[in-house]
Design a protein around this nucleic acid. Structure first.
Lengths: 330, 330
DNA sequence: CTGAAAGCGCTAACAC
DNA sequence: GTGTTAGCGCTTTCAG
């Protein structure tokens, strides 16, 4: 039994060159449409066809090693529950990046630090984007690994990107809507999931700002577990009765609705995210929806700018693409 | 002005070798604990310290090019809405793979085919896993790109992995639960999202099997948009009245509940996934929950086996870690 | 036990 | 226009 196939050889550009009866350089030129080369159409086709016939695929590691630039971009996703919102964001970002020949991959980062290091070491991405600012240590590591662009950039750290970027716009809009309905004493209810606390702060702050701007007292903020009884207790416990409540997201809003139902009371509630379940609630949930696709596109664009050397501020309008979906709960 | 820094040079193992006063080979040996080498502890430390001092990070593309093996694993995620379920699956899989020195990255595949090709071309992963079987073309491409392991493997194609793997277990359990409560005429309701149709089939089939095994007629299967009115219409339209209904997932179940509320009728309903909103429904939703972490671990293990050359069947018990969460809707 | 050297597959000067 | 060739950073024989 001859082990003729001990090592299954990879098809290289040399093979293509041989097949086409040309040199590797020529092959490389046409495969990359290297600018500043005038290749006759006939030659072009010969190369292309040879490549197709052989099923040639350029080998990324070699290409990257030589050119010094990878074309993968890494999105580090937060630990928190990923709604449809996040999926949309990533998807649009991927599209925009693809337009520039870059490939987006994601990784949800669940905590352990070395984990992140292994990640960019293994990938050698051209750029990295994270939903939260990176630590100084992480930053240093990526820099040493020659990662060209990292967002959020240090200048905009200090604020959590999530909140700075667009999440406090949500809180603000929730409050504005309620205020527009004549409500004056609001509550802001956050989930007790620790992973969400930073974002919760952001949204609550947004609401507080809106109240302040309207000359109203800032909302009471409460934190609850996702649990009917706890929600009821919280609602019952507000000493100064509230006239309406903003929920961090639709799940919290649903919990609140359930709690109030148990209590036999009822207060207007506005959620956020417009999850599918929102419309089936009793009463159907009024909520704030956002077009995260737009945000994803902006992030991608900022990344692209950063890769071009233009230091880019990721200037996202905080309220881009946010709207309230009015149903019956508020 | 000397442009000493025109190109920010990467720190290489040569630098480490120089810093340590040793050769590159030695450096490589200790950094990879190459087996079959006896390096004196003193030398070892010298290398390690030099590396640390310089902040050296090995450059993956070069390493991959030379060794011929990448340590990236790619998970191609389906287009469909990602529940907490999927997150858990991915997370556990990542952990297991990390244990073997592999790094998992994900990419949600939204359709366009060339997209996928660009993906593995750019990454040159050691292995790829997809939630649905890959097409022959995709398979061929990956093979040419020398990707060592691709799951699901061809032998198990034909069935959608989703359903084969664990999703029809869900349908089966839903039906069994209802049958155990004495119900005899079931309906299975699917969402009209085309992306979900394959999975829907799987779950519905599982339920059908359970019915058949119990000597009952198979469930009527209906497809509805996520919409109260449509749900009501569907429920009202069943000519042979049903005694209970299985929903593809909790969102469909919630729609059904809302529809029946509108109709003033009420039928036992069981959902699937146990999303947070389920417990806040009116009535609180009985549902099937699954331990996807376990599944993720199994997938990772199968991948590892495949990478070791052992052809691996990804033998997942269809019902592993599935249980019903009994609340009030059924 | 350590060092020299040969490539992995590809790109991009530089020659012809 | 097309071919030759020199590395990119790393691993890994093979000598010493």
């Amino acid at each position: 039994m001859t082990d003729q196939k001990k090592t299954k050889r990879r098809i290289t550009s040399v093979d293509v060159a041989r097949e086409a009866g040309l040199s590797r350089a020529t092959v490389s030129f046409v495969l990359n449409d290297t600018p500043g080369q005038s290749i006759p159409e006939a030659t072009r086709q010969r190369v292309l066809q040879a490549a197709a016939r052989l099923g040639y695929t350029p080998y990324a590691p070699a290409r990257t090693l030589r050119s010094g630039r990878s074309d993968v971009v890494l999105f580090v996703l937060p630990d928190w529950p990923q709604g449809p919102t996040m999926a949309e964001l990533v998807d649009r970002a991927a599209q925009v990046l693809a337009g520039a020949g870059l490939t987006l991959v994601t990784h949800v980062h669940t905590g352990r630090d070395d984990d992140l290091a292994r990640l960019w070491t293994a990938l050698a991405p051209a750029a990295v984007f994270g939903m939260r600012p990176f630590t100084a240590g992480e930053r240093a590591g990526m820099k040493r690994a020659n990662i060209a662009a990292v967002l959020p950039s240090p200048e905009q750290s200090g604020h959590d990107v999530g909140s700075t970027l667009w999440l406090n716009g949500v809180g603000r809009l929730q409050a504005q809507y309620l205020i527009g309905k004549g409500h004056t004493r609001l509550a802001y209810v956050l989930p007790d999931d620790p992973r969400l606390s930073a974002l919760g702060q952001g949204r609550a702050e947004g609401a507080a700002q809106a109240c302040a701007e309207a000359g109203l007292p800032v909302p009471i903020v409460s934190t609850i577990p996702l649990d009917t009884a706890a929600a009821a207790e919280t609602v019952a416990g507000w000493r100064q009765p509230r006239t309406a409540v903003c929920a961090y997201n639709d799940e919290v809003a649903l919990a609140l609705l359930a709690g109030m139902r148990e209590l036999g009371t009822s207060l207007p509630v506005i959620g956020a995210d417009d999850i599918p379940a929102a419309r089936f609630a009793v009463p159907p949930l009024t909520t704030v929806a956002q077009d995260s696709g737009e945000l994803g596109a902006r992030i991608a664009a900022a990344l692209l700018r950063a890769l071009n050397g233009e230091p880019s501020q990721l200037d996202v309008l905080p309220d881009a693409g946010i709207r309230v979906v009015e149903r019956e709960s508020a």
